[in-house]
Each structure stands twice: as structure tokens, then as C-alpha cells.
Amino acid sequence: MLFKNKSEVISLKDFMSSPAASIQKEKPLQTSIYSIFPVITIGDFFPIQEPGFALFFISTGIIAAIALCEKWLAMNGFTDISGNISRMTSVLFPVVSYGALFWFLFFGMRG
């Protein structure tokens, strides 16, 4: 530090004195302020009643079930069936994923 800044020294008695009594207190707000965010519930996170989310939820469950089934078959020695499932899903899942992305970008955002 080349330049030392001067420090102001205040005694404890002056620091602890009560000048706050002379400061005017603000009145509490009299009007109601409504939030810009809606109430967040579990139903908001998982809107099963909406067809788009239900389709997403079901398809995600099917993909997870196929992956778990493939892993279980491979662990139990059914490598030929597991290999067939792996080859089929390596082609099918990207086609479905890109198709869903295309649908979402061009048809799903009509609001």
C-alpha cells in the first residue's frame, strides 16, 4: 500500500449514543401489493391434465423402462436380445427426439 488513507476514529460513547430518536420513522405501506408470481403448488410442477405434459411424462417413462429392461437383460445373460434392443433404440430415440424438438419449435409454441 503506497498511500495510507486516513481513518476516522469514533469513540464508543459517541457511536452508541441515540441520534436515531431524531430520525423520522416511515409509515407502513397502506396499500396491498400483489405478487407477480403465482402460487406454486405440486400441480404447477406436474400438470398431468395437460396433454403435452402427459405425453412427455408417458414417453419419458417408456424410454426409462426400455433402458432398464435392456440393462436387466444384459446383466442376466440375454446379450443377444439386449444387443437388438440397443441397436433399435440407437436409431429410434434420436429420430423421436429430433422429431419432438421439431414439433415443439414449429407447432407446440402456438400459445
Rank of each mutant, 00 (worst) to 15 (best):
G99Y: 03
M1W: 05
T89M: 15
F78T: 00
A54Q: 08
G77W: 09
F57W: 09
E70Q: 15
A65G: 04
S32T: 14
I48Y: 10
F15T: 09
F15K: 06
T89H: 00
L55K: 02
G61Q: 04
M16R: 07
Q30R: 09
P38R: 03
F53M: 06
I85C: 02
F107D: 06
M16F: 14
T60N: 08
M75D: 15
A21E: 11
V39Y: 02
P28E: 11
V9R: 05
I33H: 01
S17N: 12
I40H: 03
I66H: 04
F37P: 00
Q24T: 12
L2I: 08
T79H: 13
I36F: 03
L92C: 04
K13N: 11
Q24D: 11
F57C: 05
A67Y: 09
M88F: 15
T41R: 10
L73T: 06
R110E: 11
G99V: 01
G52D: 09
C69P: 00
P47L: 06
S22W: 00
Q24L: 13
T41A: 07
K71D: 08
G111R: 11
S82C: 03
A65N: 07
A67F: 10
V39C: 02
L2S: 15
S97K: 01
M109S: 07
K27S: 14
L92H: 01
M88H: 08
S35Q: 09
S22K: 11
I48E: 02
L105M: 12
P94E: 05
A74K: 06
Y34H: 08
T31F: 15
F104L: 15
A20Y: 10
F78C: 04
T79S: 14
E8R: 10
S7P: 00
G83M: 06
E8W: 00
T41E: 13
M75C: 04
N5E: 12
M75L: 13
P47R: 02
L12M: 11
A64R: 07
P19I: 07
V39H: 06
V9K: 06
L2M: 07
K25S: 13
G108Q: 06
C69I: 10
S18I: 09
